[in-house]
Simulated scan of single mutants.
Amino acid sequence: MKTKLYVLYGGKSVEHEVSLKTAVTVLHSIDESRYEVYPVYITREGLWCTPPGPIAKDELTIERLIATPTFSDPARSIGEILSGIMALPGPKVVLPLLHGPNGEDGTVQGLLELVNVPYVGNGVLSAALTLDKAMSKQVLAQAGINQTEYRVYRCEEWTTDEAAVLRKAEDAIGYPCYVKPASLGSSIGISRCTDRGELLTGIREAFSYDKKIVIEREVDGREIQVAVIGNERPQASLPGEFIHDHVFFDYESKYMDKRLTMQIPAKLAEGLTSRIRELAVRAYQAHGCEGLARVDFFLDGEGQLYLNEINALPGFTNFSMYPVMWERTNGTAYSALIEQLIGHAVARHQNKQTLQYTK
């Protein structure tokens, strides 16, 4: 019997489009001799539904994956999917391809835990920690992993006294600095600020996406990325970096600039590659990660490393850094990488079934 594979994509998130692009690539690569695939589209309003009829691989497009929900109430739409296709008998696994809030933050993971279905990627706690930059930084500090100077501000603090927040940020962080929504990815809502006017604008924009923001001191240097995979014994890939001339690697730079090139492995001083890989695994384990994550570092001109952030669901198209790093590390092809992640999901689920819930 084939394993039923439920692929979740879209989502109530500003990263909705990124998720759709990921889904097209992943669905193209699924081995249909092993998996019975069920695409599940989540609208921008959080409604769950399935595209009409089976979709042949040569018909896979973003437009084809978008569906119209039967119900206008999220609870009824989710219930329809859970009691319908996800209640079918036989082996099953869920592949969440949801970026940002309402998908990458532990919410969907909690639902899947309740219905006792194996799913790819991080669990509830690690998903929530890695998406929330403010909480992640506390975990990194506790683990003794170096990071740049930062401060966290909440919306209530800002609306009460804007001038005080500006003054505190300037005194503690200075310029240039970066303002970030605490729980978003793909560089959405992030601003590089060089003076008070830009800081004011950046804070207002960040608070339009989140009720909590992080302001960080800029590290002048390179951004080095590492792919990590596994459960109890995670492994780190060779480090990689994008070669570009952008002062700020924002959303448009990441997804629209056709001149971007990958350098894998990154050209690093002797011994630094192994150090970065070890730190990536340490950070992964400190957050309780399982399945996969991409760990991003800054490397300044003096060779000092700063951990920037952990992305629990990194970009996963076939030209994204995460899968390409594995292909250049050990030859793992894109489709084989998906198989590995599904295997880790099933193994984690089976391991949890051995737990005792009665005295």
Rank of each mutant, 00 (worst) to 15 (best):
T3F: 10
Y6F: 12
L8T: 04
G10E: 12
E15D: 11
V18E: 15
K21T: 12
T22L: 10
A23P: 04
A23Q: 01
T25D: 10
L27P: 00
E32Q: 00
E32V: 05
E32A: 04
E36G: 05
E36P: 09
Y38T: 00
V40C: 01
V40A: 03
I42N: 03
K57R: 04
I62D: 09
E63N: 06
L65M: 06
L65N: 03
I66H: 06
T68F: 10
S72T: 12
A75F: 15
G79I: 03
E80T: 08
I81H: 07
L88I: 11
P91W: 02
V93S: 05
L97S: 08
H99T: 14
N102Y: 14
D105A: 01
V115R: 13
V117E: 05
V120Y: 01
G121S: 07
V124P: 12
L125V: 15
L125Y: 07
L131K: 02
L131W: 04
L131T: 02
M135L: 09
M135N: 02
A143R: 02
N146D: 08
Y150N: 00
R151I: 12
Y153D: 06
T159K: 09
T159M: 10
A172M: 08
Y175T: 05
P181N: 11
S183A: 15
G185L: 14
G185Q: 12
G185P: 00
C193L: 09
T194W: 15
D195Y: 07
R196P: 09
E198D: 09
R204Y: 11
F207P: 03
K212C: 06
K212H: 01
E216Q: 01
E216T: 00
R217H: 12
V219Y: 02
G221D: 05
R222G: 12
E223S: 09
V226T: 07
I229M: 14
G230L: 13
N231H: 06
R233E: 14
P234M: 09
Q235G: 15
L238E: 15
P239H: 11
I243W: 06
H244A: 07
D245V: 14
D245W: 13
V247G: 08
Y251M: 12
Y255R: 01
L260R: 14
L260E: 13
L260Y: 13
M262P: 14
M262W: 15
I264T: 08
K267R: 14
K267T: 13
A269V: 11
E270F: 10
L272T: 15
R275K: 08
R277D: 01
A280C: 02
R282A: 03
A286P: 00
L299W: 00
E302A: 15
G303Q: 03
I310P: 03
A312F: 00
L313W: 08
P314S: 03
F316A: 02
F316Y: 07
F319N: 14
S320A: 09
V324E: 04
M325I: 13
E327K: 09
E327Y: 14
R328L: 13
Y334R: 02
E339R: 10
E339V: 10
L341D: 04
L341M: 11
G343Y: 14
R348M: 03
Q353R: 05
T358A: 09
K359Y: 14
